[in-house]
Each structure stands twice: as structure tokens, then as C-alpha cells.
Simulated scan of single mutants.
Amino acid sequence: MDDEAGKSATRAHLIGIAIDCFGLAGPDGISTRELARRAGRPMSAITYHFGGKDGLYLAAARHIAAQLGMWLGAALDEAGAVCGDDGDAAAARAALRTFLNAAVGIMTRPETEVFARFIIREQSDPTEAFNVLYEGFMERVLDRVTALLARASGGALDPLDARVRAVTLFGQILVFRIARAAVLRATGWSDIGPAEQQVIGRIALDQLDAILDRIVQGEAA
């Protein structure tokens, strides 16, 4: 392994350990020394690669934002292929269904568990890292879903209403990640795998259609 590859591997290893540790303990709940011990690296490695624990925390946030941004961005691109900027209401609804169905699979996959703990801490007690997360993937998702909702409603939703509904629609998927223990207890599931994802996706799409049907019918009335 050459020097640059070795440095990259060390950075990736430290970030992976940091995401798990920070998600469990928060940035103030674990020391640089303990992070280094759990990573099996000297403390100087954290200073060298990230400038210290704060830099490592932000690097962890950037990694999460990049990974979720890539996964959810692919889902948004898939939805964009269904409905571009000039699509009609029916196409916008189809694009929303495409995106939500893909998002169910993304947000319930096992590798998002450690990300969720980190993100939940930033939601309850935001730091500079929250801006990294929001601008890295949340903003793009909410902007796109908001625009699709406004179009799918046939113009019946004002901008704020569309924005709040976008948060609500995405939130109904996030609950299966951030409240996973409660979901498993309530459903009797032992895990959330492909079969369970199908159930979640079907119901999420049913709810989307019910919401849009009510909005459109209300406008027509």
C-alpha cells in the first residue's frame, strides 16, 4: 500500500470509528484519547488527519452527508427521469412514488443505523455539523419533494404547505430507522428486510396517494 493509500485508509478507519462513537456518546461524551484507543491508532493520527477531535467530528458529518447524499441523490435522479422540470401533475405524482419507494429501501438498510444515531444527536442539539448534514443531503431532498408535491397538487398547495408536507412525507419513512426498536415491537418483526420494506413502501405510497387525492378533490370542489 503506497503512502497516500495508507493515509486514506487511516482517515476512513478513524471516521468510521468516530461516527459510531459520536453517535453513541456525542462529541462531548468521548475523549480524543478514547477515540484513538478504539481505533487502534495513536492520538497524533487524529491531530495529523483532522486537526483534533472537532475536526474529526465535522469529517464524520461530511462523510454521512456524502454517503446519504449519494444514495438519496440517486433516488432523486431516478424520480427526475420520471418527471423533469416541465412534467405535469400525474408525472410529478409518479416521480414522488418512485422516490419514496427508493427512500424506504435506503433509510432502512442496516448501514444507516450508525448514521441515524449521529443525525438524531444533531437534530436535538445542533452544532456546526448540522449545517453540513442539512446542506449535504437534507436540503436537496426536501427542495425536490416540495417542488414535486406542489406540481402533483395541481397548484393547490402554497409553498409553506408544500414544504411542511414534504417534511411529513419523508418523516414517515425516517421513523422506521430512528424508531426501529418501537417499530419492531409494534409489528412483531424481527428485522426490516426486503419483505418488510415492501410492506412499508406499499403503505407509504398509499398514504401519498390519499393525501394528494384529498388535496386535488378539495381543490376541484
Rank of each mutant, 00 (worst) to 15 (best):
A152Q: 01
G136H: 06
F99S: 03
Q123M: 13
A152H: 01
E113A: 15
D143A: 11
A147M: 07
V132Y: 05
S124V: 15
I120Q: 05
L133A: 07
G80Y: 03
A147H: 10
R109K: 12
L96W: 09
T98E: 05
V141Y: 03
A95P: 04
F99N: 02
D143S: 02
E128H: 12
A90W: 02
A150Q: 02
A91S: 14
N101I: 05
A103F: 11
T112Y: 11
A129V: 10
A94R: 06
T108F: 08
R109H: 12
I120A: 11
E128K: 13
A91P: 05
E128R: 15
E135T: 13
F115P: 04
R144S: 04
P126R: 09
L76R: 00
R97K: 11
L72G: 04
F118P: 05
R144I: 02
D88C: 07
R109S: 14
M107H: 14
T98V: 11
T146N: 08
D77A: 12
F118C: 01
E135F: 09
I106G: 06
L96M: 10
F130R: 15
L72T: 06
A79W: 02
R117T: 09
T98D: 00
V114T: 15
A103Q: 13
R97W: 06
Q123I: 14
G69I: 03
A129C: 11
W71C: 08
P126H: 10
R151E: 04
A74Y: 07
T146A: 06
I119K: 11
E113D: 15
A147S: 14
P110Q: 04
V82A: 02
R151T: 11
E113C: 01
L96V: 04
A116C: 14
A147V: 09
L149I: 01
C83G: 03
P110F: 05
F118A: 03
